[in-house]
């Protein structure tokens, strides 16, 4: 077995489970610590506010920081939220054809995304995943065709464009962090460098693998690197700022709503 194959097999079949175990340990550790510090407080009776008010403020709790960021920090809004999150990483991870197949392999109900035509192709000019993607042949074809509901939106909603947007987003965020570091801002942490570098590695390796049209060995190495980096991120996730995606964001916003809007009635 050559290096390329060994690397690929390690990434796809072995390290995934190690990464998953580390991830699970991290989740238990972090949630466990929260439980350890939890004490039921004696609360004052909540302020009476109507159901409509609570629904409205629930939505506002999530929307307000976005609107605030758009008004007050448009550069951060553009690079951070738009490019990196909304039009970059999130649709690529969860909607791009190749990734839908991976998610469905581990979690079969996820195939609904494909069934409902929500998935997106790798490229704007072709519905194919990629000729070298090792997916089972469908009919006469050696590749799978992404048939979706997006119509002309496929010009934007495809792996190529979204990956470039995500790369610009990560690049912009790294640039901003460097500027903040130059200004000796305290909110620049070592974790930022590790996190963004890892993300950049995943995006670059994935993009290069997807665009690669040469020797299958090199393709496999690129793909193995992409998978390995992603697994590293999975293992690292509970110990890094990426935890916000799994827990921190959801807990934080729901707690804020409960504390300020539901309880106090603001």
């Amino acid at each position: 077995m050559g290096l390329s194959e060994a690397l690929y097999n390690f990434a796809v079949y072995q390290f995934f489970w190690i990464a998953l175990a580390l991830f699970a340990f991290g989740v238990v550790y972090r949630i466990g610590r929260m439980f350890a510090l939890w004490k039921r407080p004696v609360k004052a009776p909540r302020r009476a506010r109507g159901g409509g008010y609570l629904v409205k403020t629930f939505i506002e709790t999530f929307l307000d920081p976005i609107i605030f960021s758009l008004k007050k920090k448009p550069h951060d809004f553009t690079f951070g939220l738009l490019l990196l999150h909304l039009f970059g990483v999130l649709p690529i991870i969860f909607l791009m054809g190749e990734h839908v197949i991976v998610w469905s392999y581990y979690f079969p109900p996820y195939w609904l995304v494909a069934k409902w035509g929500l998935w997106i192709p790798e490229s704007m000019i072709s519905g194919t995943l990629t000729v070298t993607t090792p997916v089972p042949p469908v009919g006469e074809m050696s590749y799978k065709f992404v048939s979706n509901i997006w119509g002309p939106l496929n010009i934007i909603l495809n792996g190529d464009v979204l990956a470039i947007l995500a790369l610009i987003g990560v690049g912009g965020k790294i640039g901003m962090k460097l500027l903040e570091a130059a200004k000796r801002e305290k909110n620049v942490r070592l974790g930022d460098i590790i996190d963004y570098t890892l993300l950049l590695g995943i995006l670059l390796a994935g993009y290069l693998a997807a665009r690669f049209r040469g020797d299958v060995i090199i393709y496999r190495e690129l793909l193995a690197l992409h998978v390995l980096f992603a697994e590293l991120l999975l293992a690292w996730l509970p110990f890094s700022k990426y935890w916000h995606f799994v827990f921190g964001y959801w807990y934080g916003k729901i707690h804020e709503w409960w504390d300020t809007r539901y309880q106090r009635g603001a």
Partner: peptide
């Protein structure tokens, strides 16, 4: 527990 969230979950975005 709430302050633990405040301490741990900041991503440093400075929003």
């Amino acid at each position: 527990v709430v302050r633990l969230h405040y301490l741990e979950n900041c991503v440093g975005c400075a929003a």
